[in-house]
């Protein structure tokens, strides 16, 4: 997507709202989809499209967990470790991913392919433990399911 197309798309979304600033969250989502994270140029583009400052956009983006102000891997694996998942073995799932990927939660593989994160309650407590792979829920996931999930990511285009 070109910068112009991105700006046009953001401005079209802004028309849904009585006030333009309201479009900042959808705008940040779109920009992040384009870059994989929110580099300074993405914040500048969002700012330009909505007539805000890049600093304001960064202030908003830094408030929310889903906006990444640092690069992440091409794939994102998020393991819920809140109470309901914790009670039924989420820690063993985190450790299985750590072993399979050769990293600690919060890190990205050296080849830049996969980032592993522990996350707060994903809202799948009845199907725990919950793992969210590239924003799609896998429920439930047991340690023995982990190698196949990682293998799938390695093969993904």
């Amino acid at each position: 997507m070109s910068t112009e197309a991105l700006v046009d798309q953001i401005r079209a979304i802004a028309e849904q709202y009585p006030e333009r600033e309201s479009a900042i969250m959808p705008a940040l989502h779109i920009a992040q989809e384009r870059y994989g994270w929110l580099p300074p140029e993405a914040l500048c583009e969002v700012a330009d499209a909505l007539e805000l400052t890049p600093a304001y956009c960064k202030a908003v983006a830094s408030f929310y967990d889903m906006y990444h102000l640092r690069p992440t891997g091409r794939h994102l694996v998020e393991v819920c470790t809140n109470v309901a998942c914790a009670l039924v073995g989420a820690q063993q799932v985190v450790e299985a991913f750590e072993a399979e990927l050769g990293l600690r939660a919060g890190e990205t593989t050296e080849d830049g392919e996969v980032t592993l994160r522990a996350v707060e309650c994903a809202g799948g407590c009845g199907y725990a433990p919950v793992v969210v792979v590239d924003h799609r829920y896998r429920e439930p996931v047991r340690p023995e399911n982990v190698p196949a999930i990682v293998e799938g990511l390695r093969r993904a285009p």
Binding site: V83, A86, L87, Q91, V94, A105, G106, R117, A118, V119
Partner: peptide, 13 residues
């Protein structure tokens, strides 16, 4: 304990 050593997202930062 069933929740022994459970990692929290804040532990990553």
């Amino acid at each position: 304990s069933s929740v022994e050593g459970i990692l929290a997202p804040v532990d990553q930062h």
